[in-house]
């Protein structure tokens, strides 16, 4: 695996390998010594064009737990509107010898371009590009779902994870909220489908993209109906950006109150779900808008665990991107040619 850019097109085998590797990484994280020597000597650059302390820290922790050198390159403020910066930054990182670049960017496709435009040959890990994809978020969501609903780990998240190797066949996941602008929704729809789960998107019609009909999921405009009749095993709430409800004639729904009434998740709606069902949110939450405090803090909420699992999943992604033989990648020749030289000298 050279890059991790999108969950669309990720094979089921690769998806399960990522989850299984995450499980092994998670197992090491309950030890006193959490640090592994695996990526010693390798350099991971966190290239963040958008503020996201949570995601950056998660990636940074993951890289450090694997003993990689981490360079945080915050490009926020250096004009995102002007494209040269991405290319020039890429060339800089190339010159610095980055082995992997974790990139967060407001422009859809930025990670894809970094990987394929020929600006650098490091592995690229998409940490969120515009409205497109956020694959490690989807992986950590799938990992959390699998542990709870397939692996039957306890509420404390401890105990052996018996779900290694398993997919999510037969599980029903409702993804609720601003699907239109959500890279989390896009990433999850494809990954969960690949893993065998059924997905229903629930949103007001204004927040469902034109063209959604080719997505491997169903769409509902009614949350209560979906919860009552479809009985999802997991409900994933999406963050609603404040600016979606302003903008006068361009607002996507009439008011926060109406949104909350029709699409907000609360204790009443939680009570409709099967007993084993879990509640998820990628964070940060707008408490009182898309999710009530009672639902967010309920024992069936796994929101905090999602954050913890994020580190393990990102360790797995970094491991699979960086640990192996890189001779297929263009960076490779360094080590390869060195040993060739040695051979000749001998």
């Amino acid at each position: 695996m050279k890059h991790l850019l999108t969950t669309q097109g990720l094979s089921k085998d690769d998806a399960i390998l990522l989850l299984d590797t995450s499980a092994q990484m998670a197992a090491t994280q309950s030890r006193e010594n959490k640090k592994l020597p695996t990526l010693r000597g390798r350099t991971v650059v966190n290239l963040f064009y958008e503020d996201s302390t949570r995601t950056r820290i998660s990636f940074e922790t993951a890289a450090k737990r694997l003993s990689a050198d981490v360079i945080n390159f915050s490009a926020k403020g250096s004009s995102v509107s002007k494209g040269e910066s991405l290319k020039d930054t890429a060339l800089t990182l190339h010159a610095m010898g980055a082995d992997a670049v974790v990139v967060r960017h407001s422009a859809s496709g930025a990670a894809h371009q970094l990987a394929h435009a020929g600006w650098l040959d490091a592995g690229v890990l998409n940490a969120g590009d515009g409205m497109h994809q956020h694959p490690t978020q989807a992986l950590l969501d799938a990992f959390t779902i699998r542990r709870h609903l397939v692996g039957n780990v306890g509420d404390d998240g401890r105990g052996p994870d018996s779900s290694v190797g398993a997919d999510l066949a037969g599980l029903r996941i409702a993804i609720v909220g601003d699907v239109l602008h959500s890279r989390v929704a896009r990433s999850n729809v494809y990954l969960l489908h690949t893993l065998g789960a059924e997905v229903t998107l629930v949103a007001p019609p204004t927040l469902v993209p034109v063209g959604v009909e080719t997505w491997p999921c169903r769409v509902s405009y009614h949350l209560d109906e979906t919860l009552e009749q479809w009985q999802p095993d997991a409900v994933m709430m999406l963050r609603v950006q404040r600016e979606r409800m302003s903008g006068g004639s361009g607002a996507f729904f009439p008011s926060p109150m109406e949104y909350s009434r029709k699409f907000g998740f609360d204790a009443r709606r939680l009570a409709v779900l099967p007993d084993h069902a879990i509640v998820m949110h990628p964070g940060p939450m707008n408490r009182g808008l898309e999710i009530s405090a009672a639902a967010a803090d309920h024992p069936r909420s796994v929101i905090v665990e999602q954050v913890a699992n994020g580190v393990a999943v990102r360790m797995a992604a970094l491991y699979l991107l960086l640990a192996g033989d890189d001779s297929t990648g263009s960076t490779s020749s360094n080590t390869g040619s060195t040993s060739t030289d040695e051979r000749i000298a001998l």
Binding site: H132, R186, G211
Partner: peptide, 15 residues
């Protein structure tokens, strides 16, 4: 950014 339809929905560019 691009035609609004199946492709824009998937690749996350404003339609």
């Amino acid at each position: 950014q691009m035609n609004e339809g199946v492709v824009s929905a998937q690749i996350g560019l404003t339609g």
